[in-house]
């Protein structure tokens, strides 16, 4: 199994020189294999989004190293990082981050257009990914005309069209109702199983987390617990709830060796 993401002793401290520094992530390491669906869980302020942003190359590391597809992201300059994001990564955000001034088609096509792909190729890919996500009939609409679920599926289509190495999702169900959330997670799970898309998802919702194949629990900037899905989703859900309950009961962060 190929390792696509490797985080080694990652540390992130905020605060300017001379002020009290705040450590969001401290000495955290984990790795991710191709085709995995990893969830990052933890209470608010635990550092999950900080971790995701560092993997997404949006936030520089204070210390340590992150390697994606064999490339170390900490050594790249701004332009290289931009190119890296546009080629290797796909993003799904809680608030969709669709560009409201562009149609669904244009939104989905953007990553390929940025790579200056041929028009025929762009059109074929957009149609393919749009039908995969069931949004073929709304491609000429603007985001303002869509429902939340449709927006998020458009966002997924945009995140997938350039076949990224890694799909990053930050609370993707946060703005959706439970029915739409379930559909979305089914879609993500399908993509992971059938198309071997590697997904790294940040969530605080146990129900969403139960779709993952592996879960990382973060508390106070450190990796607190790791959980693998073995049985059915419902069993996994119960396990997650148990771990979360346990996490809450310990007032001081436990330290894993």
């Amino acid at each position: 199994m190929k390792t696509i993401l490797k985080a080694k002793n990652v540390t992130k401290t905020y605060g300017k020189k001379g002020t009290a520094a705040y450590t969001a992530i401290s000495d955290l390491s984990f790795s991710m294999n191709e085709g995995e669906f990893i969830g990052i869980m933890g209470p608010s302020g635990s550092g999950k989004t900080t971790l995701l942003n560092m993997v997404a190359t949006l936030d520089p590391l204070t210390d340590g190293e992150i390697t994606i597809d064999g490339i170390s992201v900490s050594s790249m300059n701004e332009n290289q990082l931009s190119d890296f994001r546009s080629q290797k990564l796909g993003f799904i955000f809680q608030d969709f981050n669709l560009l409201e001034n562009m149609t669904v088609f244009e939104n989905i096509a953007l990553p390929l257009a940025l790579q200056n792909k041929k028009l025929d190729k762009i059109q074929a890919s957009v149609h393919q990914v749009a039908s995969l996500l069931g949004i073929s009939d709304i491609t000429e609409k603007y985001p303002a005309e869509l429902s939340g679920g449709q927006k998020q599926r458009t966002a997924i289509a945009r995140a997938l069209i350039h076949e990224p190495t890694l799909l990053l999702a930050d609370e993707p169900t946060g703005a959706l109702d439970s029915k739409n959330a379930a559909t979305l997670l089914d879609t993500l799970a399908d993509l992971n199983k059938e198309r071997k898309v590697s997904i790294l998802m940040v969530t605080h919702d146990p129900r969403s987390a139960s779709y993952c194949s592996r879960l990382l629990f973060i508390k106070d900037g450190k990796l607190d617990h790791e959980l693998f899905s073995a049985g059915t989703r419902e069993e996994f859900h119960q396990e997650i709830l148990a771990v979360l309950g346990d996490l809450d009961r310990r007032p001081v962060a436990g330290v894993r060796s």
């Binding site: 701004e78 332009n79 890296f84 993003f91 981050n97 669709l98 409201e100 953007l110 940025l114």
Partner: peptide, 16 residues
């Protein structure tokens, strides 16, 4: 602001 932020996240170079 949001739009340019989204584009930046999607990997559009500043120059562009």
């Amino acid at each position: 602001i949001r739009r340019y932020d989204s584009l930046r996240k999607l990997g559009v170079r500043r120059r562009l």
